[in-house]
């Protein structure tokens, strides 16, 4: 029987597994980490596919396909926190674990970026490249996405609670009764501010130029 079936209709995937029979510790760890791992693997798979296909037009579908891949690639890098945070917390992840979870894909993005940059710059400079504003923007976006995810999850739990359906306590600190907490709001505001500063406001140049100038100071 699936975990969802055990917990009754409408339960978040995996939520009841936490309160059901406890498997091996590695199995539990996998269940907690799975959303983050899936996000990272999705990013890597799209990234590799994009790298393999870009610049090789095969027909009329080429531009549309490439646009789709580019935009899909950005999804897990910038927005997977929307799902990763609430699912990991629902499965019993601590706050620190969930933070690692939402940062895993931006980290993978940073590593891939640095790895590619190593074809053009010496290793230390390529490592510095990994701290680029896109990565900073992705981190901000993940934080705000996690805030949105946490808020939606909490509201969903509160609604279930009010309708008398079973709700697990989960690891989330949000109160079941109201679903309200300032934590997600702060995350949304802070994450959005970071993303706007890093990549949106004036095209991100307010972080870009200091980042390049710091490079000049470090390696010039």
């Amino acid at each position: 029987m699936s975990a969802a079936a055990q917990s009754g209709a409408g339960a978040m995937p995996g939520e009841a597994a936490r309160s059901g029979p406890v498997g091996s510790s590695s199995g539990r760890a996998w269940r907690i980490a799975a959303p983050a791992v899936i996000s990272v693997v999705t990013f890597l798979a799209i990234d590799l596919l994009l790298a393999a296909l870009v610049g090789r037009p095969w027909g009329p579908a080429y531009p549309l396909s490439m646009d789709a891949l580019v935009l899909l690639r950005m999804g897990p890098v910038f927005f997977s926190g929307l799902i990763v945070w609430p699912v990991m917390r629902a499965r019993g992840a601590t706050r620190a674990q969930a933070v690692v979870g939402i940062l895993a894909t931006p980290l993978a993005f940073a590593i891939v970026s640095g790895w590619r940059a190593a074809a053009f710059f010496p290793p230390l400079e390529a490592a510095y490249y990994s701290t680029n504003p896109m990565v900073v923007g992705a981190i901000g976006s993940q934080v705000s996405s996690a805030g949105v995810g946490a808020l939606v999850y909490a509201l969903w739990r509160a609604r279930r609670h009010r309708s008398g359906r079973p709700v697990s306590s989960g690891a989330t600190p949000l109160p079941i009764s109201t679903g309200w907490s300032w934590g997600p709001i702060v995350a949304i505001i802070a994450g959005t501010a970071l993303t706007v500063f890093a990549v949106i406001w004036d095209g991100g140049q307010h972080l870009f130029y200091p980042w390049v100038l710091l490079y000049g100071s470090l390696f010039g």
Binding site: L50, V54, G55, A117
Partner: peptide, 16 residues
Amino acid sequence: LPDEAFTYQTLLDRNV
């Protein structure tokens, strides 16, 4: 646009 170009190539690492 050239055959190899596409709308959101601007978001590729090489162009971003």
